[in-house]
Amino acid sequence: MDFLSKIIELFSTEKYMDSIWEGLKLTLTISILAALLGLVLGVIVALVGMAKDSWAMKLPKLLCKIYITIIRGTPMALQLFIMAYVIFAIRGFPLVITATIAFGVNSGAYVAENIRAGILSVDIGQTEAGRALGLTGATTMAKIVIPQAIKNVIPAIGNELIALIKETSIVSMIGMYDLTMAAKIIGSGNNMASYIVPMAVVALFYLAIVYLLTFGIKLIEKRLRAGDKR
């Protein structure tokens, strides 16, 4: 009963709701920007990683490998910390950019792996058939391989986006006002003086965002499936 009345108190207090909206805005901003950056980075890294072995590609390929190894091998919280306190330790540097880069760079490594796996899942014979007809590697990739790979990649990237959104909750670590920070503020001593209710409420907001996203991904998947009438 106490729990319920506190939830009502939270939703009916203007300053608490202000906090939540403010946090929601930042969580969404970072998530969306980082997802875009991650996609761009992921595509580039995947393409470089899968390019033919040649003298000129040696260094870029090595860099991509190192990048993926480091990002996947270290905790996100530490990556964020290093971005904020080492790399972008610049006076007045907007934290939103720091966080976007930290999460985008992190997401990019996973997206790259997802794309790579998706492309590898397409039978090599498809590429050979395209090339044997005289199509260039790029055309074969664009018209034959990628359309088939996308069906495998979209669900994996969807999962990555969901993970990304939830992972942004650690930006409060560098003092940023996201949903989790909003919960901490509402729960702090001078406000509700208990984290339990605001944390539960904020969890519902994350759930709602992820649910909407899942729904969107399902729609896209359905469309892609409908496309090949199988």
Binding site: D123, G125, Q126, E128, A129, G130, R131, A132, L133, G134, L135, K143, I144, P147, Q148, D228
Partner: peptide, 27 residues
């Protein structure tokens, strides 16, 4: 050069994402 050399594979390798007609007209 490959435009002048048709190739037929053991496993057919038709483009799965295209109709039969599109397979023939793509190149």
């Amino acid at each position: 050069a490959r435009r002048n050399m048709g190739m037929v594979f053991q496993h057919f390798n038709l483009f799965n994402n295209m109709t039969v007609l599109q397979n023939l007209t793509l190149a």
